[in-house]
Structure formats: C-alpha cells, structure tokens
Design a protein around this nucleic acid. Structure first.
Lengths: 369, 369
DNA sequence: CCGTATTTGTTCGTATGTATT
DNA sequence: CAATACATACGAACAAATACG
C-alpha cells in the first residue's frame, strides 16, 4: 500500500471496477496522471506497468493506454479458465459419447471448455476426480457411479456446495444428496416397455435389469407395475438382475439356460438397455429362433445399436445429446446467476424429468395364438 | 530485441538455461550487471523485472536476486494444473470414445486430467481450441480435422512448438507439420482388405473411401496397389469417394444405383470403415441379397459394430483404447524429458506406425464359380 | 546484539526515440 | 508535418531489508 505507485494503481483499478473506464476505452495519459497525483512519470509507469502485466490494461505506443475487456472472465477457480467438468461412469459407454458431445458443443460455443473424468464405476476414481475438480472447475456435470449403492463421497459433494460450485447429475442421482438433476422417468420407461408387450398379447415376459444403478431398479419397478395393472402374474424366475461387472456374462448365461431347459419359454424379453438386447439377440440366433416371430424383444435408449442390426429394435427413446445440451445450459445458467447475485448455487434451478417415449420398430410382434 | 534491457534479459536467461545459475542460487547484483553490460541501473531493473514477472527469478530486498526452481512446477501453463488436452473430430464418433477412454485412464492414473475439445470437422473450432489450450495445457493429443486438406492453423501449431508444448497426432497428421504421430499403416490396411477378397477369387470389387482425411486416401492407395500386384484390372466406377458431410447419403445412394442398373454387379465391397459397412449392409438387405453368399464385405476398425450384427464383419483391427494409452504415455514421457533437461519437445520421441491385421469373420466368402 | 556494508525498493528529474493521430 | 503519447535510457537520491563481522 504505502508506496505512491500503489496509490496510483489502486486509483486506476477503482475506476476500472466502478465503470469509469469501460472496456477498450482510453484511460488518462501518463502526463495527466502525473499531474493528478503529483508524481513523476516513472512512478506512473510502474503503476500502469503492473496493471498491464496483471491483465487490466494494455498500452499502445503513440495512442494511449486502454482498459482490457474483463467482462468475459470471472471465475471462482484458481486457473482463470472457464471450465466445466464432466464425470462419467465410462466414456466409451454406448450412449455417453452422445451426451458428452451435446454438452461439449454447447459449452465450447459459450467459451467454456470441458474436462473429462471417467470413474469406470469405481468410487475411488470418483473421489479423485472430485478433489481435482474442486480446484479447477466452475461447474460439474456428473453421471453417478453405481447410483443404487450408498455413496461414500458425500463429503466431497458437500464440499462442492460449501465452495458454491454448482453440480448437476444426469441419468441418475444419489438420493441422499437430493441434488439438481436431469433424468429419465425410468419407471415409466420400464412400464412402457412392458405395457407394449402385454398389449401385444404376451404374458410370459422375462426382464433383465442392471440393479447397481437406480435406472435399473426403477425400470424393474415399471416392469412389475405394468404386470400388476394389466393383471398379468409374474413368474419370479422371469426377473433377472445383474450388476455392472456381470453384464457381459450373467444375462447371456441365464437366457441360454432358459432355452435349454424344456418348459414354458418366455415369448418376450424386456431389456435394461439396447446393449443387452444386442447381446441377447446373439443367444436367440444361436437357438435359431426368429425375432419377432418366435420371440419379441424390447430395448432401452434408442442408441445407434437399435438400428444397426438386421432386426431394428423396438426401444425407448433417450434424449442423449439433447440431454447433454440441457445439462450444459442449466449449469451455465446457474453459474451466471450465482455470479450476478449472492445466491447459493444449491438454491437455483429445478430438476428435469424427461418423459420416455416408446419407439416401435421390428423386434416386437403380436402374439400368435 | 534491439533494446538494451532485452540484451541483458537474454543474457541472464541464457545463464539460467545453461545451468550457470542453479535454482535458488543468487545471481549477479544489479551493480554487477550495470558494470558488465555498461548500462544504467534502471535498465538492469527492467530486465530483471520482466524475468521476475515471467517467473524466472525472484527478488529479495536486501539479499539479492535469485533463480526460481523451475524443475518442480514445470507446467508452462498458467493454471498450475497438470492437464492434457485431447482434440477430436467428433466425440461420438464410433471408435473415438475408446481412444479417449484409453488415454483418460492412463492420464488420470498419472495425476493428469483431460480436457476435451471437439472440432466437428471444422478448422474454426480447431483454432479456438488451440488458442485456449496454449494457456492451459501441458500437452496435447490431436486427431486432425480433415487431414487431407491444407491446414490453416499451422501458425497455432508452430506457436505450440515455440512454447515447447508437446503435441502428438493420432490416426492421421498434417503432412506439412511433420509432427510426432501414432497412426495405422492405412495403406497396408486397405491392401489387406483388398488382398483378402482377391485371394477369395473376387475380381469385381467396389471400394468406398472417405477422402477428406488422409486415412481414406491411403486406404484407397492400398486398394489400388492390391489390384495392381495381383494383376486385377479395376473398373474406375468401382472407386467411390465421399467426404465427411456426405457419409450418410452418397455411398448408400451409389450402391443402391449400382444394384438397380443391370450389368456386372460387384461381388465384394471394401469399406472405409465399419460404420459405412453397416450402412451398406442395410442396402444389401433391401435388395434381398445375402452376405456373404451373394456379396462379400470388408470393414475397417474392428469396432463393436463389427460384431453386433447378424453377420459378424471381416474387418481390420484398430488398436483403439491401446492407441489412446500409447498416446498418453508418449506425451507424458516427453513432458518428463523436457522438464528434466533443456531439450525441445520437438526433438523427443518417435512416431509409431501400427501394423494392421485382418480379422476374418463371416462377411467374406470364397467366390463361387 | 549492534552497526555497517550490501542489495533491492521507491521516487524523482531529464533526454531521446518511435509510433499514432 | 506537428503534436501527442508511449518506449527506452541515463543519473541520482533515499528507504528498507538483509548479511556479516
């Protein structure tokens, strides 16, 4: 403080902050400042020099000294970069790339850039990612890891709240946190899958659900609800649950087994997602069964997989890149609002639940009597 | 250059770089420098002042001026974060997620995090991304945009070199830059695709190649080479080129046309990649033709698409996540080496060319006589 | 612990060069 | 072309912190 050049520096900074000097506007000349503060030119130059290196002003020889446009840069994070983090379970997961693309596209158009973290379904990695993000990001979009299990990283999420860094969960959320979120109505989705088959006359429907995330549990709930509402009884053996680690083995084995033992074969399959549907299609082909003539199958997500095979899958629409875009927009809106006022990030924004829609293609067919 | 303080500045920097001044060692006093260079104290102070703001030196009143320890904080970037950027053409491109996953996994295990930029095949976005990266990243992995066209952003790439930020191109590279790269031997790949079909007795082979990237051009070259070496003449109409914007329309239309006109139908198809193969499979199904009985088809990349359909595709193996991992490792190795010595990033590391391998599945078959 | 020499920090004055208007 | 404004450079003085005998 005590120094003269510091006085000059503070005075100029004030005028920038209170709007006397607008972006790109010329400020006083060196000689004007000399008179105003009664100091030597050298002193004025030191003051201006420091403001230049700190990014407040820029000088143009022969023209003058000008105010930098700082409106574009405000951020809580250390690096002065506008940065949004995305944490996902698995980057190469079949629908996640689309979600990321939607978000990245919106964010980069608005001057932000995207940091990517993959948890590979491990809470440990999630924690590591959160720690790093705390220092470097203005906002976070998270796809929770194993959302159905108790989450150990609550402390880190609460830390985010303390630092007023907005976060948003997509696809699922940790219930305990009651966070802002964009999700599908998965229960309704499961209901629609099942209802469609029941309406086609199927009564022996087998359902496969991944139950270490919330989506799977809710879809299963919808599966049960549809049965109940239509008065169709369920054979408990027709509900198959599995978790992430087993996804490429257990469901396939169980279906194969089902086909091998004689008895009432299911006439339709409800799948947790398209990826699983494709896997099960292989088993059906092995048995020389025809889809949809011998057996109907419904997927979930409407991924490109659904329309890649010879039988185009009946499935549930997932907004994918739109979801990423919505998430990105919501995060930026919150950041803007927090910056403008003194609100807490926690109190802004409202969760969105997307209504699922059934897309009927060629993998489902009226039951033959 | 011309200024005296710049001369002094350069001289001091030299002594820091060549090791005369070790970290935390006291450098010459201001008066010593005045004598050495025959300049005023003012001039010396300007020189030192700039080196201080640039992070090379620090001053202690009463004690002297000292050399900063740059081995620790290395990071040339402003934010003190360990950060690697990945620039891709399209995040949701079908094999890129795997590449990113491989890279992300390796990098996060080594304490780095990943910033993601998507160019959507536009040079403009690429440029915006490069500008941002210049400030915030320690290294860059790039999948070049439209690699076959002349690249406008050379200046930005040269800027990277000037700032000694290592970069690495994967899948393809801009020839003019002669950069470090990890690529497939695409020519050999195209050769293997074609050779396989020729050895199966096919002589009327149609090839589809995306020619706004280098990969496509090289694969086409391999296609031609195989024909030439095996003494099979090519009907010029059997070479179809398209670019990114047309990928979902032109090849499909041309194949459909081909089927509609009578005459010598091709008995085999060489595809730029699996994605195209899947698209063309739809056209083949439309015409009620059987793969591989009526027509053989070869993909490229061995993506999950290759084994999702009812006919498992014969295709060329692509290392995908391994490639991402290799790229990540190479970048970190370079960063480490640059930090330890005073080498230029440009001069470290050697490009890798991955040998393609043919994976024979069910979509190709011996020609019937 | 004190005092002195050394070294950087701040400030002034002055002069000349160069780019912009 | 002249006036203006920043860029570079020299010289001098005193203040404040540190190092060392």
């Amino acid at each position: 403080m005590g120094t003269k050049y510091n006085t000059v520096k503070q005075a100029i900074m004030c005028k920038i902050l209170d709007g006397t000097f607008q972006p790109h506007q010329k400020i006083y000349t060196e000689s004007e400042l000399m008179k105003q503060f009664g100091v030597s030119r050298h002193t004025v130059r030191i003051a201006i020099g420091e403001l230049v290196t700190q990014g407040w002003l820029y000088r143009e020889q022969g023209a003058g000294t000008f105010c930098v446009d700082r409106t574009k840069e405000e951020s809580t994070n250390v690096s002065n970069q506008k940065n949004i983090a995305i944490i996902t379970t698995s980057i190469s997961d079949y629908i996640f790339p689309s979600i990321i693309r939607g978000a990245e596209s919106y964010l980069s158009q608005h001057g932000y850039h995207v940091s990517l973290f993959s948890t590979n379904n491990s809470h440990d990695s999630e924690q590591r990612a959160l720690k790093k993000i705390l220092l470097s990001s203005d906002g976070i979009i998270i796809e929770p890891t194993k959302s159905a299990l108790f989450n150990i990283n609550i402390i880190d999420y609460l830390n985010l709240e303390r630092q007023n860094i907005p976060y948003l969960m997509i696809n699922a959320f940790y219930d305990e946190l009651d966070p802002l979120s964009i999700t599908m109505d998965d229960e309704k989705g499961g209901y629609l899958q099942t209802e469609h088959l029941i309406e086609l006359g199927h009564t022996n429907i087998i359902g496969f659900f991944k139950t270490d995330d919330i989506q799977g549990n809710k879809r299963m709930k919808g599966f049960l609800k549809a049965h109940r509402e239509y008065g169709v009884t369920i054979d408990p053996h027709n509900i198959v649950t599995y978790n992430s680690e087993e996804k490429s083995t257990k469901p396939v084995e169980i279906l194969r087994e089902k086909f091998n033992i004689d008895g009432d074969l299911p006439t339709a399959i409800v799948c947790y997602n398209d990826e699983l549907a494709i896997r099960l299609l292989d088993v059906i082909r092995e048995k020389k069964l025809q889809v949809p003539d011998d057996i109907s199958i419904v997927g979930f997500d409407d991924s490109f997989m659904a329309s890649v095979t010879e039988v185009k899958l009946t499935t549930i629409q997932h907004p994918k890149s739109k979801m990423g875009e919505k998430a990105a927009k919501m995060i930026l809106d919150i950041i803007k609002e927090v910056a403008g006022s003194h609100k807490k990030a926690r109190d802004i924004g409202e969760s969105i639940v997307i209504e699922p829609e059934l897309i009927i293609r060629d993998s489902t067919k009226q039951m033959h009597k």
